[in-house]
Write a protein that binds this DNA or RNA. Sequence first.
DNA 1: GCTTTTAGTTTCGACTCGAAACTACATAGA
DNA 2: TCTATGTAGTTTCGAGTCGAAACTAAAAGC
Lengths: 191, 191
Amino acid sequence: MERASLYEYLSRISRLLMAEERSGREALPAVQMAALHYLNRCNRYSDTPASVADYLAATKGTVSQTLRALENKGLIERHADANDGRVVHLAPTRAGKQLLRAEIPPPAFRAAEAELGNDDRDQLRELLETLLRGMQRSGQISSFGVCRTCSHFRRLGENRFQCGLTEERLTPADSEKICREHAAYATGAND
Amino acid sequence: MERASLYEYLSRISRLLMAEERSGREALPAVQMAALHYLNRCNRYSDTPASVADYLAATKGTVSQTLRALENKGLIERHADANDGRVVHLAPTRAGKQLLRAEIPPPAFRAAEAELGNDDRDQLRELLETLLRGMQRSGQISSFGVCRTCSHFRRLGENRFQCGLTEERLTPADSEKICREHAAYATGAND
DNA sequence: GCTTTTAGTTTCGACTCGAAACTACATAGA
DNA sequence: TCTATGTAGTTTCGAGTCGAAACTAAAAGC
């Protein structure tokens, strides 16, 4: 009773997703969308070209070009770092954020997601997270998770958090952002 | 308790998957892999450039170039159609099939899939299929499913099948292939 | 027979991609 | 302090993706 493999479903969904992103009214190549979306979701230690490269699993050279394209379109801004003259911080402009709200996720995906019940949606999300963490572990890739799901995340009290790595205090808003230093909890499988 | 959205997990997994495909020993761009994989899985009515374009959600112009690249690498072959002088049939060469076996799915994905239990894997597959069908319905995209899951598929007896659309007899091997005329069963949602 | 449709290719310009060379700044060591 | 060595980021190159539009050739419709 073999129908199609997990791999086939995922490749197919990802192709349809990419095609839809490109075809939107204010269309952007899928990589540019992904970079913009990341920059809108990451914390202040993870908004650099190097982080974007890591996140997108691309080289820094490739990412440099993608970021140039986004800047030329007025969708992101660059800011020099105060302490380190080499590093650049990136942030979506107002136009960039607006584009994200309008275009992501694309309509057919939104519709298909809505047709799934709440239970199925949650379950699918959980299974995909497991799969993703597995791939990251096997491929030696940084996990890039949301701060509050990190093993360094500490709860000091009501709405008072701290990062066990940098010892820094975190606001509730901080704790919802994506961090490049994110460490997944061990799952018993490997390591 | 918002962690990451379904969309985020899927984009992220698809980026990692594409990156891994490109980085393999006999690496190929992800689109070329997808085209080659499709041509190895489709039936004799679905092995044309037009079908590949439909399947990949790309234009025929784009696909024409991708197919040229695959042919130049000796991974696919072209055959003229006997009845219609316009149509071209495509098939993976021996080298093409061998490359598929070696490179697909990529190692980190294989590992992550293996870590999932059998139950989780089946469930994930089912949820992804539902999501995919939903996207195809909303986006007016052909479903491109495996023959035996088609609403035109008829069982005549033990190992004897027939296509209700072309009236043609089907072997068990035929029934496992991907068909561009595939029609999904209605699911009660839309139409 | 003539028009329209369909299958496929070609060309264009913007973009992706990795590799490698490069600039500029930071840091460690003698 | 001077000199590696390392790190952040950019540039350039060649192969490839991508859609749009122009194009060829064969079929189908009338």
